[in-house]
């Protein structure tokens, strides 16, 4: 079976400084993959490069064994919450409907079936009661769930999620991870940018430790070791190491 995502020698340069350098990565179907690394390690850059949002200096990305725009259409995307203006004059259902636009193509308008499908997606994230709410009137966690519903409406097999747990309360975090697991159980692959080491081992089936290069990747229990974390986070890891090693001890005991 072909890997869902494969990158080879992926290199991205921002104003003469490499952000990603020679990243080789292979991800197979049906898992939740956590993308971890310190600030500025190139996590967001990596998923943007995979989706063709930024130019590559060298290397290639294959989604489902294909390259180019057609392949990228087979990926769904949950951007960072702060990346949009929440005062924008649309309601929650309008946002979820945007997930259908790619499938609709240029000239078709969203119809009744799309609307019903969008409502189903809202139901899946427990937000159906807020369908006609203006999006600024939603809490941070609710906004994140709307983004998740929009991704569900895209009906793709691979999703890139950029920091979906930032700025949401604990209850929403738990709700989101439940939804992600449900999606995984349907055979979807989720690549999640994450920065909280204390929850990483719990949330993800696979981990990729990134710091300009891939430090380690594979099943969580193999990757989430103190040595690997040290290599990814360098000298910056002090409190974090403690938290993480405590977490490891908890898991092994």
């Amino acid at each position: 079976m072909k890997p869902v995502l494969e990158t080879h020698d992926l290199t991205v340069i921002y104003s003469r400084k490499p952000v990603l350098y020679g990243v080789d990565l292979t991800v197979h179907a049906g898992s939740i993959v956590g993308l971890l690394g310190p600030n500025g390690a190139g996590k967001s850059t990596f998923i943007k490069a995979c989706m063709g949002l930024i130019p590559l200096e060298s290397g290639w990305v294959e989604l489902f064994g294909q390259r180019g725009r057609k392949a990228i259409r087979r990926a769904g995307y949950v951007p960072q919450r702060e990346s949009v203006d929440w005062d924008f004059p649309v309601n929650a259902l309008d946002v979820v409907l945007m997930g259908r636009y790619g499938k609709l193509g240029l000239f078709r308008r969203p119809g009744k079936a799309d609307r019903e499908m969008a409502m189903d997606c809202l139901r899946m994230v427990n937000m159906e009661a807020y369908a006609d709410r203006q999006i600024a009137a939603l809490s941070g966690g609710q906004q994140q769930r709307i983004f998740l519903a929009r991704a569900l409406a895209q009906e793709t097999d691979l999703y890139f999620l950029d920091e979906p747990f930032v700025g949401v309360d604990a209850a929403t975090e738990a709700a989101i991870i439940t939804i992600l697991r449900k999606m995984r159980d349907q055979g979807k692959t989720l690549i999640v940018v994450h920065h909280d080491l204390t929850t990483a081992a719990q949330y993800f089936d696979q981990l990729v430790l990134l710091n300009m290069r891939v430090i380690a990747s594979g099943p969580t229990q193999e990757v989430f070791t103190e040595e690997n974390l040290h290599r990814a986070y360098g000298g910056r890891l002090t409190l974090l190491t403690q938290a993480a090693s405590e977490r490891i001890q908890q898991r092994s005991s």
Binding site: S83, F88, V90
Partner: peptide
């Protein structure tokens, strides 16, 4: 619909093809 999604979330529009 294209103008709407581009105005709201341009990167998402690009990923949607």
């Amino acid at each position: 619909k294209e103008f709407l999604v581009i105005s709201f979330n341009e990167t998402f529009a690009r990923v949607s093809g």
